[in-house]
Simulated assay, not measured.
Amino acid sequence: MNTYFPAALLAALFLAAPTAGATPPDGPGVPGGAAVPAPTTVRLTVSGPAPATTAPSPEATTTSAPAGRTVTLTCDPAGGDHPRAEAACADLDATQGRVERDSDTACVLLYDPVEVRAEGVWQGRPVSFTRQYGNTCELNARTGAVFAF
Rank of each mutant, 00 (worst) to 15 (best):
S47N: 07
R84M: 13
P49G: 05
G48T: 06
D112Q: 11
P49S: 04
T105N: 03
Q96R: 15
N2L: 11
P126V: 04
P37D: 05
P6Q: 08
P25L: 13
C89V: 02
Q96Y: 12
T40F: 05
V42C: 10
C75M: 04
G97R: 03
T61R: 15
V121W: 01
L9H: 06
G32W: 02
A35L: 15
R98A: 15
C75V: 08
G29P: 06
V114W: 00
E138Y: 07
V121K: 00
A16Y: 05
T95R: 08
V116M: 06
G124S: 07
G27S: 08
G144N: 01
V46Y: 00
V114I: 12
D76M: 03
L73S: 03
T105G: 00
A148Q: 01
C75K: 02
A106G: 07
P66H: 02
G68E: 14
Q132A: 12
P83S: 08
G79W: 06
A22F: 05
T54E: 03
A50G: 09
T136I: 08
V99L: 11
V30W: 00
G33H: 02
T19R: 13
C89W: 00
T130V: 15
A88E: 00
P24K: 05
Q132H: 00
T72R: 02
G134C: 06
F147T: 04
D26A: 14
A35N: 12
